[in-house]
């Protein structure tokens, strides 16, 4: 089966500063792939290059379609979802409207079910439906960003440190939910994280990114057992 995402020789940066050099990775049908890396390793840069927010060289193929050279909104319409780092919410729109922004391209009759699903995923958001997203806590905004990206039913969902700012218990729930969405709908996911302990429990494959290079790759359990990963990311 051909992969959902195939990245080869991805090189990207900011102006004259090259941050990523020759990054390659693959996300298979229905897979969750995690990229681990320290602060400044280039995780966010990787996702921004994939979704077209910054220019890049190399090749990025989504389900057989080359993405490089297409605008970010066109890539999204091809089925690429991206839950950005930090607070990418529409601060003056309500929680409900934020989710509807995610569902803009759904057939109208599927919208109610998708909204129910989103609130089912994060019940904490239900009582906040009519509140402006800018008035949510950091963790609540994080949940909203993930739920909003899922509303669009992407083929591949890019997740930028979804655990950031969440309590350990909420993080555990979030990852369990991501795993469930993945298992139920087959949505492939590319997850970048520093929280290796949580991320590796749900990952099929993983890579370690250092200074814009992939230095280590393996299955989730291989990485979890790797001594240098354990030292650097698991604190053991």
């Amino acid at each position: 089966m051909s992969p959902v995402l195939e990245v080869r020789g991805l090189t990207a940066g900011y102006g004259s500063l090259t941050v990523l050099r020759d990054v390659g990775l693959t996300v298979g049908e229905g897979e969750i792939v995690v990229v681990l890396g320290a602060n400044g390793a280039g995780k966010t840069t990787t996702l921004r290059a994939l979704s077209g927010l910054i220019p890049a060289q190399g090749s990025v193929v989504l389900s057989g379609t080359e993405l490089l050279g297409r605008k970010a909104d066109a890539r999204a319409r091809l089925g690429l979802g991206h839950a950005p780092e930090g607070r990418g919410t529409f601060t003056d729109l309500t929680v409900d409207e934020n989710l509807r922004m995610g569902g803009l391209r759904l057939p109208r009759n599927e919208l109610p079910a998708a909204l129910d699903q989103a609130y089912g995923l994060f019940p904490q958001l239900t009582p906040l439906r009519d509140r402006a997203a800018g008035r949510l806590s950091g963790g609540e905004q994080q949940m909203l960003t993930v739920a909003r990206a899922l509303m669009a039913r992407p083929r591949l969902l890019l997740l930028d440190e979804p655990s950031m700012g969440l309590a350990p218990q909420i993080t555990a729930n979030l990852f369990a939910e991501l795993r469930r969405v993945n298992a139920e709908s087959g949505t492939a996911m590319l997850l970048v994280e520093q929280n290796a302990a949580a991320a590796l429990t749900i990952a099929h494959h993983g890579h370690v990114l250092e200074s814009g290079h992939i230095v280590l790759s393996g299955t989730g359990s291989q990485l979890a057992g790797n001594p240098s990963v354990r030292r650097a990311y698991l604190g053991v």
């Binding site: 979704s51 909104d73 990206a149």
Partner: peptide, 16 residues
């Protein structure tokens, strides 16, 4: 409204 508030997030959701 979304596009005027947060163009980048709008693009990520497929809005031109």
């Amino acid at each position: 409204r979304g596009a005027s508030m947060n163009p980048e997030s709008s693009r990520l959701l497929g809005v031109d």
